[in-house]
Structures are given as structure tokens and as C-alpha cells.
Nucleic acid binder design. Structure first.
Lengths: 107, 107
DNA sequence: TTTTTATATTGCAATATTACGATAATATGA
DNA sequence: TCATATTATCGTAATATTGCAATATAAAAA
């Protein structure tokens, strides 16, 4: 019914799935890649670079923010989104753990 | 409109997002983890272990299959799903590349 | 062949996601 | 203060996802 039965799964399974969901849209991949290439980030740049409407970009940024991957600060006059280093490495480790823990000698 | 504007993004951005989408559900994480713990996999086991209905499990398996992460063979009388090692490591590298290529010294 | 067992497909309902126009909120500059 | 620029929120439409009952298919066992 469109609702994931999260209660059936472990916390780590749900958390990894949640993180994957944020990466499960090319716009959000593109946004993260773009932010990392800049010294700072102005949302309006993203609208030009990505090619989606400003409200849509704002929503995607919000999704990324929700799992703690972005911290926003002010730099001069414009709002600046930055990748939260600690959270980023946390997720990197979660994915890495998942990939390396899978036993591939099944059959 | 529920439709991702994939044409705006690069092939690698779309592919990573597509892979992340498969991991973006705890049931599919759980299925992959379960398969890796077994020597073989019978879908009916999954129904008991995961706790979702058989058609739902079948659908999730299909999603995993679609990006080439599963190869199915026959072992005795039962269908056996196994993780495709080559594809698995390919995805692992894609994610790893994404995580390590992001520059965190933004601000 | 018939029954049993295991998996796949179909059809449908409920909820989620994606996208954007319109508009609001916020901050800077004149 | 008022205009301008930037980001956030609201409302809405279209499509996607999740889940399962019912049913179909396929293979092995009786």
C-alpha cells in the first residue's frame, strides 16, 4: 500500500535503506557532486546548473538535509550549504560495511 | 509529476541513483543479507524470514534482479538465487568512488 | 495424470515521490 | 522604507512504489 513495513526490519536495515533513498535520485547525486566542487553553494546556482525549477531544487536539498548530510551556514549575503563531513563518512562506512559483509560465495 | 527528469543528468549519475533505488528499501537490504548468509536461497524461506507476502517478496527479488545483482540457477528441485559477484563489486566500486570523490573541505 | 509445492503475474488500493506555478518569507541594497 | 534577490512553503497534478489477494505457471512427487 505504498507504505514500507519498517517494523519488520532492523534499525540498521532501515537506516541504510533511508540513506540509499536520498541517493536514489540523480538530481540529489548531482547536487552533492556540485556542492563538493564549490567552495560554497548558492541554491540559485543549482537551479541553473541542474535545470530543475527552484522549488524542486529546494525540496531535494531538504531531503539531503533531513538525513544530516548538509549543514547550512551564512557566508556574506548568501545561504551556504555544505556537506557535513562527519555524517558523510558515517554513511560511507555504512555502505562499505554492507558491501563488504555480504558473502559472495553463495553458489 | 512523479517522473524523474533523467535526461538532465549524466549516465553515471543516473546509474548510481538507480542502484541506490534498489537499496532504498529495507526488505531488499534484508533479502540481500539473507541470501549472503545462505549457501542457497529458496524464495519461500524469504517469505517466512522477512514476513512479507510471497508476491511482495517476488517483486522485491525482481527489482534486485533488474540491475543484475542476482543470478538464478537451479539446485536440485528449487530455484536458487545468488548474488552476482561481478556486478556486486561493480556497484561497490561505484558507491565507493562517489563517496571518496566528494570534496569535504567546502566551508 | 493428478496432486503438491514453489515461484511469477495480474489487478487493485493506499501511500510516496517528483515536479512546478504561485506565493510567502527573509535578507540585502538603494 | 521600499525594491530586489534568494530561498522556503503551499497546493496540486502526474507518476511511482509498496503490498497483498487471487490466480497462473512450472516442476517435482505420488
Amino acid at each position: 500500500m505504498g507504505v514500507s513495513k519498517t517494523q519488520l526490519f532492523s534499525i540498521s536495515q532501515n537506516e541504510l535503506a533511508q540513506a540509499a533513498k536520498v541517493l536514489a535520485h540523480p538530481a540529489r547525486i548531482a547536487i552533492l557532486e556540485y556542492i563538493s566542487r564549490q567552495d560554497s553553494c548558492i541554491c540559485n546556482d543549482l537551479v541553473d546548473v541542474i535545470g530543475l525549477a527552484q522549488p524542486t531544487i529546494s525540496q531535494h536539498l531538504n531531503e539531503i538535509k533531513k538525513i544530516g548530510l548538509l549543514k547550512g551556514t551564512f557566508e556574506g549575503k548568501n545561504l551556504c550549504y555544505c556537506i557535513d563531513e562527519e555524517r558523510w563518512e558515517e554513511l560511507q562506512q555504512s555502505f562499505n560495511k554492507f558491501f563488504t559483509n555480504i558473502n559472495l560465495n553463495c553458489c
